[in-house]
Amino acid sequence: MHVTIDEDKCCGAGQCVLAAPDVFDQREDDGIVVLLDADPPQEQYAAVRDAAAVCPAAAIGVRE
């Protein structure tokens, strides 16, 4: 699995951090997503798919 983010689309909701805290974080000042692990381990796959699905800005891309 390879994860990409689109910082311009990100609206700083933080829903991805709630879904997959080992893969996503937010910048301190504006809340824009920070990708912690672009190639997460298999046990994170389900959480990352949920994060991408629930992102209200459709800013997370997942390639499998």
């Binding site: 933080g14 951090v17 709630l18 937010q26 301190e28 000042d29 504006d30 809340g31």
Partner: peptide, 9 residues
């Protein structure tokens, strides 16, 4: 206040 709000959630 992005991060503090996440804590308050």
């Amino acid at each position: 206040m992005i991060r503090p709000l996440r804590a308050a959630r």
